[in-house]
Design a protein around this nucleic acid. Structure first.
Lengths: 337, 337
DNA sequence: CGACATTATGACACCGGTGTCAGCTTTGAA
DNA sequence: TTCAAAGCTGACACCGGTGTCATAATGTCG
C-alpha cells in the first residue's frame, strides 16, 4: 500500500497540487467540474491530507491543550469528553495537561508546553480559569484561550460557565424548605472561584429566608474527600449539632456521610446532607446524595468549539455564556422531624 | 519577539543547518568545538526545534494514542497519568481516544484515527488489550503497539500486566481464612480478559482450600455499578445467604454494600464484601472495602516507555512483564461469627 | 612520505502541504 | 463589439526541519 499524497492525487486527477489544495480547503475559484473530479479521486485513492504537512505550511498544530488540576476524576473525564467531542468535530486533537503548579512555576511550565507542543489554543478549567497571571501571560503571548466555569467575566475572552451561585442558593433553599435552620457549610478550595460563588449562594439563601448567618457553622475544606473528613468531624461534634450539612462538593459530602454513619447517625433522619457536582459517588453511596448537576461536558464543548472558531477567524465579540445548574434530590435530605 | 528557526541558529553560529540538526539529534561527526558553539547559541537564542517540521521530515508525529473504554474514571485517569509521564520523558505527546466500539466499527474507527492523527504508536488498555482482531489489524498495518493488562501473552508484542489471577486468589483466600465458606462471586464484563482471570483466581482459592465450587453463588456483572446492583439483589436474596461476596471490581462491590445497607444488613458483621482495583470509592464509603491494588500508573508507564523505545529502534525481544497486585484490607471484611 | 581510511562539514533535494502571483478564460456592461 | 472585471488554473517559492552525498580536513599505517 503506497502513500497517497497531494501529488499523487494531483497527477491522477490531471490538475495541479494547488488546485487539489483548493478543493481540500473549500476555497472558491474552482470550477464545479474540477472540484468534482478531484473529489472523486479523493475517494478512489482514499486520500487523507497530512495534518503535519498542513501544520508546517500554516504554522499550526491543530492541537488544543486542556489544562486542569482537579481532585475529581469524574470531573476531569467529563471535561475531556466535552473537549474531545468538539475537537473531533473540527479535526483538531486534544492534548491533556494535568498540572499541579502555581504562580511562577505554572507560567514557565505552560510556556514550555506551548514551546514544545505548539498548541493552537488552550482551554482553562478550574482553578486555572481564574488565574489572573496565567490569563495575562496567555494574552501577552497572543495564545487564544477559553475559560470554563470561571467566575470573573472579563470583556474580551471566551468564557462558558454555569451558575454556581444560583445552584448553591437553590440547594440551600431546598434544605430550608425542608425545615432546616441550622445548616452547616463546608467551603471548597480557596483557589477555585467556585468556592466563593457557592458560599455566596448559601448566604443569599439564608438571607432571603430570614435565617441568620452563623460563622461557626462554616468549615474550610478544599474539595478533597480527606478535607471533608476533617470538616465533618468538627461539624458533627458541634452542640447543638446542625440538622443539615451542605458541602461544596460531593466528595466532601460523602465524607460527612461516612463519618455520620460511623457515629451511628441516621442520614437523613438525624441529619441531612447535600453536596454539589453530581459526581458518580453521589449515587453510588447509600443514601444517595442530594446535589447540583452542572452541564460540564456541554460547557467544555461550547468553550472548545468557540475557541476553535476563534482560531480560524478571530471574532470581535467574545462568546460568554452561563448555563443552568440543576437540583437533584436524592435520599440524603429530608424534612426535619 | 521573532521566531527562532534552525536557520537563524545556523547563521548566528556560522555553520550550516545540517550541522545544527546534527547537534540537535546528538549525531556523531561533529567536532566538540562546533557542538559547543551551537549549543551556546541554542541557549542564547532560546531555540526550540519545531516538532511539526521535524515530524514532516521524518514522517513521524511524536504522538502516542491511548485507547480505552472503561467505566471507571479513576482507572482512566491513572492510565493517563502513567502514559503522560512516559510521553513527556521522551518528548512525545499523548492523544487520548475513548472508544465504545466493537468489531468492524472499532477497526474502521481506529483506521480513521491513524489516518487523521498519524500516530507513531498506540497503547491498548483493557478491554482492547486482548481484542484479537484489533491486534491483528495493527500488526498488518505495522503500527507499533503496547498492551496493558492483557491476559494473553503473544510472543512478539510489548505487554505489561499485573497478576489478576493471583490477586483474586489472595483476596478469596483472605475471606476463607476469616472463616467464610459460602463466598459469592460477581463476574466482570465478558469482553475484559481480567474477568476470566479473576474468576480463575477465585476458583483456585476455593479448590486449594477444599471448598466446593458452587455455580449458584456466581453472578454475571459487567464492572458497572448498575450491574452490581442487579447481581447484589440476586445474591442477597439467596437462602441461605452467603456470608461473603467477592465482586470483580470495587464499583460492583460498592453496589453490594449499598444494597446490603438498604436491607438493614450490617457489613461486615452480617456479610463481608470484597472488591478489586482499589478505586477511590473503596475508601470513600463506609465501611471501606477490602480490595486488590494494582500498579496501574506503573504498568502504563512501562508500556509507553517500551513502546517509544521500540519506535525509535525496534527491538528483537518483546518486553513482557508482570507486576504484583497487592491485597488491601479494610473494614468490609471480618471473621465470620 | 604517500596512499588511504576516517572525520567533519555543507549543498541541496525532499517531506506534503499552502501562499503568492502571473496568465489565460469567461463574463458582463457599455 | 470591446474591454474591464471576475473566475479559474498552475508554476514556484516556502514552512523548518532531515537524508544523501560530495568534498575538505585530518588521521593512520606501511
Amino acid at each position: 500500500m503506497k502513500k497517497v499524497t497531494i501529488n499523487s492525487v494531483a497527477s491522477y486527477a490531471g490538475v495541479s497540487k494547488k488546485t487539489v489544495s483548493r478543493v481540500l480547503n473549500n476555497e472558491p475559484n474552482v470550477s464545479d467540474a474540477t472540484r468534482e473530479k478531484v473529489l472523486k479521486v479523493f475517494k478512489e485513492l482514499d486520500y487523507t491530507p497530512n495534518p503535519i504537512a498542513r501544520g508546517l505550511a500554516q504554522n499550526r498544530s491543530f492541537i488544543i491543550g486542556c489544562l486542569y488540576d482537579n481532585p475529581s476524576k469524574s470531573y476531569i473525564t467529563r471535561v475531556q469528553t466535552g473537549a474531545l467531542a468538539a475537537c473531533h468535530e473540527h479535526n483538531y486533537n486534544l492534548l491533556i495537561h494535568p498540572c499541579e503548579l502555581r504562580g511562577e512555576e505554572l507560567i514557565s511550565n505552560i510556556e514550555q508546553l506551548l514551546q514544545t507542543s505548539r498548541l493552537d489554543g488552550i482551554v482553562l478549567t478550574p482553578p486555572f480559569s481564574d488565574f489572573a497571571e496565567l490569563v495575562t501571560f496567555l494574552k501577552s503571548k497572543k495564545i487564544p484561550y477559553a475559560r470554563v466555569a470561571s467566575a470573573v467575566l472579563e470583556d474580551d475572552s471566551i468564557s462558558v460557565r454555569s451558575n454556581d451561585e444560583q445552584g448553591a442558593f437553590e440547594i440551600t433553599e431546598h434544605l430550608i424548605k425542608l425545615g432546616h435552620k441550622e445548616i452547616a457549610f463546608i467551603k471548597g478550595h480557596p483557589d477555585h472561584s467556585a468556592t466563593e460563588q457557592r458560599f455566596k449562594g448559601y448566604r443569599r439563601a439564608l438571607a432571603t429566608n430570614g435565617i441568620e448567618f452563623n460563622e461557626r457553622l462554616v468549615e474550610e475544606g478544599n474539595f478533597s474527600y480527606h478535607s471533608g473528613v476533617d470538616s465533618a468531624r468538627t461539624i458533627l461534634d458541634l452542640s447543638p449539632r446542625p440538622t443539615a450539612v451542605f458541602a461544596s462538593n460531593d466528595y466532601m459530602a460523602a465524607a460527612v456521610l461516612k463519618l455520620a454513619t460511623q457515629m451511628q447517625l441516621k442520614v437523613p433522619d438525624d441529619i441531612s446532607i447535600a453536596g454539589f457536582d453530581n459526581a458518580p459517588i453521589a449515587r453510588h453511596i447509600w443514601p444517595g446524595l442530594t446535589t447540583i448537576a452542572q452541564p460540564v461536558e456541554e460547557m467544555t464543548h461550547q468553550a472548545v468549539t468557540q475557541l476553535i472558531s476563534h482560531i480560524s477567524e478571530p471574532q470581535e465579540s467574545p462568546y460568554q455564556v452561563t448555563l443552568e445548574a440543576k437540583l437533584i434530590t436524592r435520599e440524603s435530605t429530608a424534612a426535619i422531624k
